[in-house]
Amino acid sequence: MSRLRGGASVFERGGAGSPLWGRTDAAVVATILLVTFGAALQVARDRETVDGPAPPGIRSVPPADLVQRAALSFEAVLADLYWIRAVQHYGRTRLSGGGAREYALLHPLLDVATTLDPRFDAAYRLGAVFLAEPPPGGAGRPDLAIALLQKGLASVPDRWQYLQDIGFIHYWWLRDRDDAARWFQRAADVPGAPWWLRFLAATTMTEGGDRAGARALWRLVRDAAGDSWMREEAARRLAQIEALDALDRYQRTVDRFRVRTGRAPRSWQDLLAAGDLSEVPVDPTGTAYELTPFGAVTVSPRSVLTPLPDSGALPARPAG
């Protein structure tokens, strides 16, 4: 208030040659101070609401058709908005380690986004990945992921990527190689689809879900991916498969040590001392593998590869 009163006396001076610059200066400073103060209060308010109401729009999702009608001619922008919200909802929940319950809004948000913009490619493909992965990494709803992709196919039937993605979900999460192969086959039948889809279908059909097939599959995904997130995700999967192979190898080393000495190694040092290993083994990301007190080799929980897909999904090929 004193600042304002100070300003008033300057205003009175007015007239020619008055130091206009002086009071502009004061006003700029005052404005900056006020904005800073306002911003600080906003931050304080946001702190206040950490466990209060959720950020706007995320609290509940209105039915997709309602939003569409209310959108007037701004469907595309609103679709983007809902897609951004879906990604944020996914990202935030994933970071906070939330379970399936916390992902409850993911599918409604994606549904609104894709209803508003039926050709929203990223929302279908990445959205399906978010939905299919089991908690905590995703919603663990491969059924909803497939439904979302089929919704995409309804509006863009010649998009073979959606068919391939559905096959993928069948292969990877539903562990149904026959269904997966059928979807890959359908994808391959779409005019303009790449040659390797047929190869993929055949591989899946005949070899049936071993790591070699999986590796081939992820490599194809990695090399064909148009999206960097997709490419990195494929690379991570490949690293996981590599880690699974390595775990089998080191487990055999540990088992040999146990047979030889009659006890489980306490640490990698035991194995180094005995000459079974020349160095502490690390996973493809450079993080050391862990050895449990009971002699089981695992990926470190600190590694980005954690959690590994459970072995049921990727049965190890019999040793030898």
């Binding site: 009175e12 001076r13 007015g14 007239g15 020619a16 040659g17 008055s18």
Partner: peptide, 21 residues
């Protein structure tokens, strides 16, 4: 009336500068 500010020079009304409310 101080609706416009002078570029140079000044004015007085009843012995007071025009800026005087």
């Amino acid at each position: 009336m101080q609706l416009v500010h002078p570029t140079s020079g000044g004015a007085e009304i009843l012995g007071r500068p025009v800026g005087d409310v």
